[in-house]
């Protein structure tokens, strides 16, 4: 597997998952001995069919669900997920925005800082500082019901950014948006990410979206997921949505789809896929 050049220059790990196993009681395993890593500052997408347990994986990675077996470690210090979550080191952005209707944009975005004991004034001024760069200038006093779907997702993203330190887990954040809003939100996310360079794990089932945003795309097709196949996306940054028309992009898309089909095939034939591990 070819490795992203940029990631190689910063080899420290933001997330290391090894030997992860999980299944809901009385059901078959969703993940079996799954291992993968995210390098610091990397944007990685997880492309998987519906019903594969993407949301469950995120709940495991954010410490909401305990793993049956295996370890999940965060950051260069390799802190265990349970502790890391308690310290607010993970920013989880759920599929539905989960904004609190009784809080303004300002107070919704500031909740993470507030929970960690920051004085309200300091938390608010920090949010106010970031609102313009999120395309939310002037919305600080608005309530969630006054915002469009795209705006709500921006607030949700900002909240995750401020709530979690190092690692952002984005669970199909644009899944519910219409195509036009979605495209503009992708541009917006590219822009926001290029400014902050947090490590991101992004779940989607949109091939274009995965390629456009990511440094690497992980692919899974069948449960139980024992490994991911991966594709490095060596497209230059900064990127914009128009990139989807680029021949290089289309070639990558072809590779990704082939990878996806192979993953299905391989798992159907029950062939062990050692080469699919990032490491």
């Amino acid at each position: 597997m070819n490795v992203n050049q940029q990631a190689l220059s910063r080899p420290s790990m933001a997330l290391s998952v090894s030997g992860l196993a999980f299944g809901f009681p009385g059901e078959r395993l969703l993940f079996d001995n799954l291992s993968f890593e995210l390098r610091d500052g990397e944007f990685v997408s997880l492309l998987a069919a519906s019903g594969l347990g993407k949301t469950t994986l995120f709940r495991l990675l954010s410490g909401l669900l305990p793993a049956e077996r295996g370890t999940i470690r965060i950051g260069t210090d390799g802190m265990d997920i349970a502790h890391a979550a308690r310290d607010g080191r993970i920013g989880y952005m759920p599929q539905r925005d989960g904004l609190m209707p009784w809080r303004t944009v300002l107070d919704n975005a500031a909740i993470g800082l507030e929970l960690r004991g920051a004085p309200r004034k300091a938390a608010r001024s920090k949010v106010l500082e970031l609102l313009p760069s999120m395309g939310l200038a002037g919305t600080e006093r608005k309530y969630p019901h006054e915002l469009s779907g795209g705006m709500r997702q921006r607030v949700s993203f900002l909240r995750s950014l401020l709530g979690g330190g190092e690692l952002l887990l984005l669970d199909e954040p644009f899944g519910a948006l219409d195509a036009m809003t979605r495209a503009s939100m992708q541009d917006w996310l590219l822009h926001a990410w290029e400014q902050h360079r947090k490590t991101v794990l992004f779940v989607t089932h949109d091939v274009d979206e995965a390629l456009l945003l990511s440094d690497r795309v992980l692919v899974a097709s069948r449960t139980p997921v024992a490994s991911f196949r991966e594709l490095a996306v060596a497209l230059p940054r900064p990127r914009r949505h128009s990139l989807v028309m680029d021949p290089a992009f289309i070639e990558l898309k072809r590779q990704l789809l082939r990878l996806y089909e192979h993953a299905e095939q391989a798992e159907r034939n029950d062939v062990p896929e050692s080469e699919a591990h990032p490491r």
Binding site: R59, S62, G63, L64, A85, R86, D87, G88, I90, G91, Y92, P94, R96, G98, L99, M100, W102, I111, G112, E114, L115, R116, R159, G163, G164
Partner: peptide, 29 residues
């Protein structure tokens, strides 16, 4: 009370009293 919001606050390290005061109580109003 919206469980998504509760999960979210938990991932941010919210304590039980914080969950009650900032999530449950306003939701029940």
């Amino acid at each position: 009370a919206d469980p998504d919001t509760g999960d979210l606050l938990r991932t941010m390290g919210a304590s039980k009293p914080q969950l009650f005061l900032k999530w449950k109580l306003p939701s029940a109003m």
